Amino acid sequence: MEFTDRLAALATKVRNQADAIGTEEATKNAFVMPFISTILGYDVFDPLEVVPEYTADVGTKKGEKVDYAIVRDGEVQILIESKASLGQLKIEHASQLFRYFAVTNARIAALTNGVVWQFFTDLDAPNRMDAKPFLVLDLLDIDETLIPEIQKLSRESFNLESIISTAEELKYVGALKREIAAQFREPSDEWVKFFTSRVYEGAFTQRVREQFSSLVRKASKQFLTESVNDRLKTALGASGIHAPVEPVTSEPVVTEDLDRDTEIETTLEELEGYQIVKAIACGEVKPQRITQRDAKSYFAILLDDNNRKPIARLHFNSKQKYLGLLDEDKAETRHPIDSIDEIYLHAEAIRESVRRYA
């Protein structure tokens, strides 16, 4: 199995089981050890490669332990500290990593809850672990550009020099991407003022600030939607792939699905929901076959861009969000969700819907 396939398989496991894993020990067994073994390729049962509960006395701190130390050629190369999967990672959780980093030969440290992996090195000062990670891998939303960098940490392809040489760029590019994403979701006053000053010549008063806050948010979402659509069109055109053309039949077409009124506004939440459903459906079919159409009443996710093959519907236009799933007779059941991540709770139903058509 290829590296990317192994990573995708573990990501699927994390999506399906993360909410059921409540303790740090369960997180280690379910997610951390499989990552070390199947993704990085180290033998978790060989103490010459992976040392659990690694101990090194640090100053007045005696007997403190780091969850795992990965050893190569008799030297500790990677330190790993694990926390429970349901908890958010905080830099305070890395206190042992900070201390151990200074007294071992390790140049790489990882803090994880099994879902998110934060990798650190010593860019700011030699032998002192940085306060900010140079690479962040979220198994629920894998950034494909990071996969080659993760592979450099594996037993088969370990290349410390290459990792360190690209770490600074990865650190700042990753931080910038996360900040840009945050601004797209909820633009700050500085972001609003920056763009307003380039299109509006008047004074930036409180009234102008309030007016342009909503305009910048709307323009950002529309720009993102158009960029995604342009990339899909380019990819389809470059590969010569075209959406299948269905033969004309007497079966009635659901006109609601074809309503492309100009008042329709595709939101960032709908696109994020679409990407989650697409990630789940890709376990059954190629990703190019999963498409979307937005309408006034709901956001439809389809197989082969065919409105007769609905996979799911996102009803995100009201305060209470719903995920619509359809049975064999196309009868829809709406499932209330409080956050977009809850779509993962219906992963099997989504895959079953795809299997019916595929």
Score class of each variant (00 low, 15 high):
residue 36 I to W: 07
residue 4 T to N: 06
residue 8 A to Y: 08
residue 49 E to A: 06
residue 15 R to V: 04
residue 66 V to E: 05
residue 48 L to P: 10
residue 52 P to V: 05
residue 20 A to P: 05
residue 59 G to V: 08
residue 47 P to D: 10
residue 61 K to M: 09
residue 5 D to N: 05
residue 45 F to Q: 15
residue 49 E to K: 01
residue 7 L to H: 03
residue 35 F to H: 05
residue 30 A to H: 11
residue 10 L to N: 00
residue 64 E to C: 07
residue 63 G to L: 00
residue 30 A to Y: 10
residue 10 L to S: 00
residue 65 K to Q: 01
residue 66 V to N: 05
residue 49 E to F: 06
residue 16 N to G: 03
residue 48 L to H: 13
residue 3 F to G: 02
residue 18 A to V: 13
residue 45 F to R: 14
residue 35 F to R: 05
residue 5 D to Y: 05
residue 56 A to V: 15
residue 1 M to W: 13
residue 48 L to C: 12
residue 1 M to N: 15
residue 26 A to R: 13
residue 11 A to H: 06
residue 48 L to M: 14
residue 12 T to N: 14
residue 9 A to V: 11
residue 27 T to R: 04
residue 43 D to L: 04
residue 8 A to V: 00
residue 2 E to W: 08
residue 14 V to K: 01
residue 15 R to W: 07
residue 47 P to S: 12
residue 57 D to Q: 12
residue 24 E to C: 05
residue 65 K to D: 00
residue 29 N to C: 02
residue 52 P to M: 09
residue 4 T to V: 11
residue 40 L to H: 11
residue 21 I to R: 13
residue 55 T to K: 13
residue 4 T to E: 11
residue 2 E to F: 11
residue 3 F to W: 00
residue 38 T to D: 14
residue 55 T to I: 15
residue 32 V to T: 11
residue 66 V to G: 05
residue 20 A to D: 12
residue 8 A to D: 04
residue 46 D to T: 02
residue 40 L to C: 10
residue 21 I to P: 14
residue 3 F to L: 04
residue 45 F to N: 15
residue 49 E to W: 06
residue 58 V to H: 01
residue 26 A to C: 11
residue 16 N to W: 09
residue 2 E to S: 14
residue 53 E to K: 01
residue 29 N to W: 02
residue 65 K to H: 04
residue 37 S to H: 15
residue 43 D to K: 01
residue 6 R to F: 13
residue 17 Q to P: 03
residue 41 G to Q: 04
residue 60 T to R: 08
residue 21 I to T: 12
residue 11 A to T: 02
residue 44 V to W: 12
residue 27 T to M: 07
residue 5 D to W: 02
residue 7 L to K: 03
residue 19 D to V: 06
residue 38 T to H: 15
residue 36 I to S: 05
residue 6 R to Q: 14
